[in-house]
Each structure stands twice: as C-alpha cells, then as structure tokens.
Computed example of a mutant assay.
Amino acid sequence: MTLGQAQGADDEGVRLQKVLANAGVASRRVSEQLIVEGRVRVNGVVVTELGSRIRPENDLVDVDGVAVQLDQSKRYVMLNKPTGVVSTMKDEHGRPDLRRFTKDWPERLYNVGRLDAETSGLLVLTNDGELAHVLAHPSFGVTKVYIAKVDGRVTPQTVAQLTKGIELEDGPIAADKARLLGSERGTSLVELTLHSGRNRIVRRMMAAVGHPVVELVRRQFGPLHLGTLPAGRARELTTVERGALLTLARRDPGDQETP
C-alpha cells in the first residue's frame, strides 16, 4: 500500500526518506533502502514507495516497530534524582525541588510520575506533555524496577510472598518479580519489579512483610535503565532510548509491557 492511499494521495508534506534522515535514523540513501525493504510504517501502514510524503507534525513513523521522534522541539531527559529532593518543579514548602537539574535546557521540563523525597533513582523529565500523561496513567502499567535495602534478613518465603500478593490498606498488591540480592549486617537487598503507580508502594509492601525500607532506588523505568549515571546528574536520552520510550507511549494500553 502506498502512503498516497493512506493519507489521500496529495503532494503536500516532506519526502519520507528526508524525514528519516533529519530524525537521525540513517542517511538518506540508507533510509530509502529501509523504505523499499518494507521496514517503515506511517500511521501503522507500511510504506514502500520512495516518492511518499508525510506531514511530520501530524504523522507517526516507526522503523522496524520502533517509534521515530519527528518533533525535534521535544526534549527527553533522564535524571538520577538524589534523596532529599521532592518530585516537583516548585515546592510550596521551600524544599529542594527539580528545578536545579533542568538549568542546562531552555525548555520548561516536567517530571513523568514521581519518586518520594527519600527515594533516589531514575526520573524522566520532558516537555512532551502528551507522553508524560500517557506514561504516568495507571492503564499503561509501565514497569519499574527498584532495589530496596531493608531491615532484617529476608527469606525465600518472604520473596515468594511478595510475588504471590499481600493485602494493604488500599487493596491487594503483588510484585511482578522479586528476588533477594543478598544479606549482611542485619539488612537485605531486594529487587522488586512492579507496574503499580500507587503511592510509596515499595515501602508499604516491605513494611507489610516485616522488613521496613532503609534505602530505596529506582533503577529502571519502562525501557530505560539508570546505568552508571551518578546521583544528581541528568542527561538527554539517546536516540535508541527515545525510540523505545516513544514506542511504549504509542502502544495500546491493553497490551502487556515486557519488563
């Protein structure tokens, strides 16, 4: 099927291979090859004709199923939020907030979701309000991975209990995955994978099984991994990371994300 059939067969817009090259997907020649090979879709329709034109401001493009960022005015930043900082751009109580980490970018950035003040780790900052709303919405169930240092020696039975499910004051909850990373000096390290967006959920879960959290860090948010980014540092997402994040944001909320 041609793009002309998909969007009304007119000559408006920009040639698809030029759009792909401008977006940093590949050179124009390689982009043409991707199109001919049927690896490019526009609004869900495979496009194979090199004369095809699109409207970058309206159309959604993906290559090999990975979304392409066409709007270069959108900024996507990963922050390793330190403890003691609240997840807001301006705190009415005067506590340290996220503004200090956005000074390097001219755009007004906002956080996707929240981490409580005493939890450190991966937080996404963006000026893409639509993406922020989608990824923060409970129906999307974006997977998050946390590492918790907790009081006491966690047993395999407790780990099993976390995945089987426990009852909290606001309803039952179960971790998608849980594993014990080790124990020493009266504390344990537990890795929890969750898709719940409920407030302070990891702390409440661990307290409910008798192991209050001492320290908590979020290592992963959807397809994004914190890696070696130091606490208090922020960086722009790579092209691959942006593609993965946009792909996640465009999926049907009924689809299950693969952790």
Rank of each mutant, 00 (worst) to 15 (best):
G4T: 04
Q5A: 14
A6N: 11
A9K: 08
D11P: 00
D11C: 00
Q17H: 14
A21E: 12
N22A: 15
A23K: 03
A23C: 11
A23M: 09
A26G: 09
V30E: 15
S31F: 06
S31P: 06
E32C: 02
Q33Y: 00
Q33A: 14
L34P: 08
E37A: 15
G38C: 12
L50W: 02
G51M: 00
S52N: 03
R53E: 01
I54K: 00
E57I: 00
D59N: 10
L60H: 12
V61C: 02
V63Y: 04
V66D: 01
A67C: 06
Q69F: 01
L70C: 09
D71A: 12
R75C: 14
Y76K: 07
V77C: 06
N80V: 08
N80K: 05
N80E: 09
K81A: 09
S87K: 04
M89C: 05
E92F: 00
H93S: 12
G94W: 05
G94A: 10
D97M: 06
D97C: 14
R100A: 15
R100M: 13
F101E: 08
T102G: 04
T102D: 04
T102V: 13
D104R: 14
D104M: 09
W105E: 10
W105V: 09
W105R: 02
E107G: 06
E107C: 09
D116C: 10
T119E: 05
V124M: 13
V124E: 01
L125M: 05
L125G: 04
N127M: 08
L131Y: 02
A136L: 06
A136Y: 00
H137R: 01
S139V: 04
F140G: 00
G141E: 15
K144Y: 05
V145A: 06
Y146G: 03
Y146F: 10
Y146P: 01
I147G: 00
A148R: 00
V150H: 03
D151S: 12
D151N: 09
Q161M: 14
Q161E: 15
L162H: 07
T163I: 14
T163H: 07
K164V: 01
K164R: 15
G165D: 11
P172N: 07
I173Y: 02
A174M: 05
D176V: 13
K177F: 10
K177Y: 10
R179K: 15
R179H: 13
R179N: 13
E184H: 12
R185I: 03
R185Q: 15
E191N: 06
L192D: 01
T193M: 06
L194C: 04
S196M: 02
N199I: 00
V202T: 02
M205E: 03
M205D: 04
M206G: 02
H211A: 07
H211F: 03
V213M: 01
E215L: 10
R218A: 03
R218N: 01
P223T: 01
L224V: 02
H225Y: 10
L229C: 09
A231N: 05
R235Q: 11
L237V: 11
L237Y: 08
T238S: 15
T239D: 13
E241Q: 13
G243C: 07
T247L: 07
R250C: 08
R250D: 09
D252Q: 11
P253T: 10
P253S: 11
G254F: 12
G254L: 14
D255A: 15
Q256W: 12
